[in-house]
Design a protein around this nucleic acid. Structure first.
Lengths: 196, 196
DNA sequence: CGGGTGTTTGAAAGGCATCAAAAAGCGTGG
DNA sequence: CCACGCTTTTTGATGCCTTTCAAACACCCG
């Protein structure tokens, strides 16, 4: 993925659309098992991608342990993102979800900063809604509330200035210290464990 | 993981608990990147596990391409499960969530069957609630409704007979034909694609 | 400068959460 | 073996948040 934005989604049997995520320039995607895919991809904006045949990829991975490690890292990050998504959808209200989306999008596009920044949201409100498990109206209303409270400022349809990042991160449930993702303690097992 | 059941969860900054999943006997878990974990594990029942040092694991994976493929398959399945979870939490109501949980638990413990089966639910209602993004009361009420409608029949606290699997699968949004997971079409990209 | 799509706002309804209390399991000790 | 007490589960009543339905508004393109 060189530049542009695309949405990754699934269509449920009854026609509902669930957006699993968005891919932006500079990100890897489609690393999966032959002939099986997790989601459908659709361009939000014109997109330029670099394709790598699976056979070549396989060969490269077989040749280089370093590459394999990197690959594992990538898959780990994706897994981490998916689980963060689960947490957001399972535990958070509309305001928290939207704040979370804004903050993590900001973290992806620019380097992380504490001051106000402008982010691009190439996708539609409907896309955000389908990603956040909300309706388009709730997304709009929530953004309006954030604007009234001075946390964000819409710049046209696809731009958004994030003022008071600290408050947004707070809403997003991202503790100020860490950079937002996978604050996880090591695995601890409790009763009868039999090593070896 | 040889036998038993454990819950994998995260605690949010504000104390809420999000259960990412449950692990049962015969399943692999903890395949991750050194020193970084996705969630905390806690035993629901007494558990017996088989531990494999990361260094050994690494060595085995480096030695055998076949094992690597298998490993990739495993990670793919986990990813798939996480995304299914996202869909459930993002798009489904309480009844659908509970039905989904029952059906997919049934698929994991026994071979998939169309007739009524008895499943074990070692975890508490609170665990289910935290997994499904609901409150314990809503889980109870939903189970009661399913019982009134003759879809399930509780057998004590941790047993459940699933009658009318077909209706349950329908509720769960799992089309009758496929075995429940990842009905996904190949990636299709739409505007400006530049291969190679 | 329209027309059409995408977005925002409003009013009413519904579903899930919350608070509260009763019922059912389950382990303990008599 | 049964009774007791605690925890877990279930049920009930009420309120809030999100959805739904509807209409006004803004933006983009020809």
């Amino acid at each position: 993925m060189l530049e542009g934005c695309l949405r990754l989604y699934r269509i449920l049997p009854d026609g509902r659309r669930a957006i699993m995520g968005f891919a932006f320039g500079g990100e890897l995607l489609g690393v999966a098992v032959p002939r099986r895919y997790l989601s459908t991809a659709e361009a939000v904006t014109p997109v330029r991608v670099r394709r790598l045949a699976r056979s070549r990829f396989q060969a490269a991975a077989d040749a280089s342990p370093g590459l394999r490690t990197q690959l594992l890292e990538t898959m780990f990050r994706e897994m981490s993102a998916a689980q963060d998504h689960v947490v957001v959808l399972g535990q958070m209200g509309a305001e928290e979800r939207v704040a979370n989306f804004l903050v993590s999008t900001a973290c992806r596009t620019n380097a992380d900063q504490k001051r106000a920044i402008r982010i691009d949201l190439p996708m539609t409100r409907q896309d955000m809604a389908d990603y956040l498990g909300l309706t388009i109206e709730t997304v709009c209303r929530t953004l309006s509330r954030l604007r009234r409270d001075g946390l964000v400022e819409p710049m046209g349809r696809h731009g958004m200035i994030l003022r008071r990042m600290a408050d947004l991160r707070l809403l997003a449930g991202q503790t100020d210290g860490d950079e937002g993702r996978s604050e996880c303690r090591p695995v601890s097992i409790h009763p009868t464990v039999w090593p070896n």
